[in-house]
Each structure stands twice: as C-alpha cells, then as structure tokens.
Nucleic acid binder design. Structure first.
Lengths: 129, 129
DNA sequence: CTAAACCCTCCCATTATGGTAGACTCAAGT
DNA sequence: ACTTGAGTCTACCATAATGGGAGGGTTTAG
C-alpha cells in the first residue's frame, strides 16, 4: 500500500499524471483511505510503468488504452498488438518523412542566406514570395 | 478590397485561421465596413501567404511573429533571420532524431512479435517489464 | 419577399502536461 | 498541546493551433 508520492517515485510517473490517468479511466481504480488519500498497490505501479514506456515510444493515450486492455486480457492474440504497433510505427515514420522534407527546405533556405548585416534576405523573400 | 471568404481563396488560409491570426495580433489590423464585415487588401493576402508558408515549414506562431517583424522592417539584417531559421531547423532535427530512435525500438519490438493468434506477446512483455 | 450564401461573435473540444490556490491531514519536534 | 513542514486533496487556469457549431445579422439573386 503506497500513497501517491511513493508511487511517483516507484513508477517515474508524476503525481499530476497519475491523477490524470486515473481521471480518464486509463489507470485501474484506486482505493481511498478514510482521509481521502489514494492508495496504490503493486498492480498500479506496473500499469504506470507500462504507460510510461508506451508514452516514451510515442503512443497516444487512446492507443495505450487499447494496449493496456490487451495486456490485461489473458486471451488476447499477439496479432492485435502487432497491428497496433505497426500502425503507430507507420504514423511516426510519416511524421519523420514530413519533418525531413522540412529540414531539407530549411537547409536550402539557410544555405542561400549570407547571414550578414544587410537587409537582403532570401529566406524572407522565399516566404513572402 | 476583399472580404474574408475571398481572402481565404486567395491566400489558402481558412477563414477561421484568418480571424485567429488577427485576434492574436499576428496579421495586420483590418478595416471593418459599416456592417461589421472585415475587409482585406493585397497586403493582407501577402502576409497570410507568408504565414502559411512559414507554418508549412513548421515554424510556431511565436517565431512567425518575429519573422514577420523582420519582413516588415526594411532595416533588418539577414543575420537575424538566419539565426531564427537555424534555431528552428535544429529543433526539428532533434525531433527527427528522437522519432527515429522510437521507430528503431518499434522495429525491434515488432520484429520479435510473431503476430499470431496466441496470447504470447513480446511487445506487451517489453512494455510491462 | 424569400432562399442561399455570407459574415459576425461566442463557446466548446482537441492532447497531455504543468502550475497554482486554498484547504485538509499527518508526523515530528519543541 | 502546539507548531511546522511535508504530503495530499480538488478545482481552476494555461499551453498551441485549429475545427466545429449555435444563434443571429446581411446581402444578393430569383
């Protein structure tokens, strides 16, 4: 039985986040003591670590909800998880692709800009074209 | 003298965005007709196109504000613009780097997952470790 | 005169997190 | 017993940029 501060230290998830995850029904329900304090058990720590790792992999909370459901369900199929992971990976790949294009454009613009004290600026020219 | 719908078509920026950019002081002030309708001139179209291009390059509005100020200021130095562009490019590069790491991690996880009908799933195992 | 197409303002929702205020609880020290 | 500090609670605000919609005025064409 931990209280929220200990749970933060044990899981690496901030108190704010813990309360938020509970409020949106992502984290399993917690018990409350007489004084209103939340109490956590090992199970919650594990869930929070799970959430934290999934967040670090960029999964949005909506998808973590599905992953968590599969994690809790002993009769799930690994195929479902794989589909989720692949879908997410593709989304990130798309973002990377778009960002790399942007970087290339910026490279070209910056390259063409002398960056001196004069008001002449190809970057602004290109934007204001 | 255009009204907001025409301005949307000419600039490619949505009516919603146009009003928003004005409300935060990004777009130059507009005149209002007797009936309350906004009226736009060439100048506004140019500014909106500028904003649109900068947004497409991923510049946040805060930085577009600075770029626009430099664009309007005939006595600016191109060095200032270049610094802004480089800072922004570096920020995006960092994001790309982080995302690529994530993709690699996902690649490994997905690779290790057979994706069949069985409940055994290395992805969930890794997240719930 | 009416319908359609415009325009207006105001409010809400999104995503996930951090901050703060005001109040309560608990444990330790004096 | 009393105070102090740490811990916790709820509730509200803010972020970034955009879209959606309600409810209501205006203009133009038929």
């Amino acid at each position: 039985m931990f209280q929220i501060g200990q749970t933060e230290r044990l899981s690496g998830v901030s108190v704010k986040q813990i309360r938020y995850y509970e409020s949106i029904g992502l984290l399993s329900k917690t018990h409350r003591r007489e004084n209103g304090y939340r109490t956590y058990e090992e199970r919650h720590i594990h869930e929070l670590r799970f959430i934290k790792r999934a967040r670090e992999l960029g999964f949005p909370i909506k998808e973590i909800r599905e992953l968590l459901a599969l994690w809790r369900n002993k009769r799930r199929s690994s195929g479902q998880v794989r589909v989720l992971a692949e879908r997410h990976r593709n989304a990130i790949k798309e973002r990377v692709k778009a960002h790399r294009k942007i970087v290339l454009s910026l490279d070209r613009l910056i390259e063409s800009c002398k960056g001196d004290e004069r008001p002449d600026c190809p970057i602004l020219d290109a934007l204001g074209r």
